[in-house]
């Protein structure tokens, strides 16, 4: 329990650093915004400016509260977590990549095919052994959803090219 609290505190320093960086980038982008052509020229910058200050202050607070020296500890914590739960992070990474590939294929090869591929990869990731049932699930889901959305709900999904289905 105590170790966990210690770990969290150390991680807060890294969190502080990240929030500080995000806030700073946002501040720079805010200052670079084009001036408004109507009304007060700097008006569009007011609100983003306040937000960036809020984030920078919070970032600095978390960084200093735990001490910059804790950054090393927190990087070590992340390494430990990657060693310990590496397979979970790998699953998340593969899922994210799969989602991006899905987005790339979505319009090119149509809803049914891209969704079939997406589900097939997801299911293969979690249960390789039942590949027959995986294929059935992926096929049924993509075809049923396609027809439910395009025929019943009036949402036009990309068809399979050439076949126009």
């Amino acid at each position: 329990m105590k170790d966990q609290i210690k770990k969290n505190n150390a991680n807060d320093s890294l969190l502080g650093l990240i929030i500080f960086i995000i806030g700073s980038i946002y501040l720079v982008l805010t200052l670079q915004l084009k001036e408004a052509s109507i009304g007060n020229p700097v008006e569009p910058k007011y609100f983003p400016f306040i937000i960036s200050v809020l984030l920078i202050v919070l970032g600095v607070y978390f960084l200093l509260k735990t001490g910059i020296s804790q950054l090393k500890v927190s990087v070590q914590n992340i390494k430990d977590a990657l060693n310990l739960e590496g397979d979970i992070y790998l699953t998340i990474a593969i899922t994210s990549i799969n989602c991006i590939v899905y987005a790339l294929l979505f319009k090119k090869i149509g809803y049914i095919l891209s969704t079939f591929v997406f589900l097939e990869v997801m299911l293969y990731l979690t249960r390789k052994e039942k590949w027959v049932s995986n294929i059935i699930v992926s096929t049924l889901f993509s075809i049923i959803i396609y027809f439910v959305f395009s025929k019943l709900l009036g949402v036009v999904l990309p068809p399979i090219p050439f076949l126009e289905v």
């Binding site: 899922t95 899905y102 999904l157």
Partner: peptide, 29 residues
């Protein structure tokens, strides 16, 4: 193990129905 991938797929098709934009898919991730 079957239901979670389906929830993901539903999330994508739902998002597409909202804005019919693929950029939203990247934002989702």
């Amino acid at each position: 193990k079957v239901l979670y991938p389906i929830v993901l797929a539903l999330a994508f098709v739902g998002t597409y129905a909202i804005g019919t934009s693929i950029v939203d898919y990247y934002l989702l991730v």
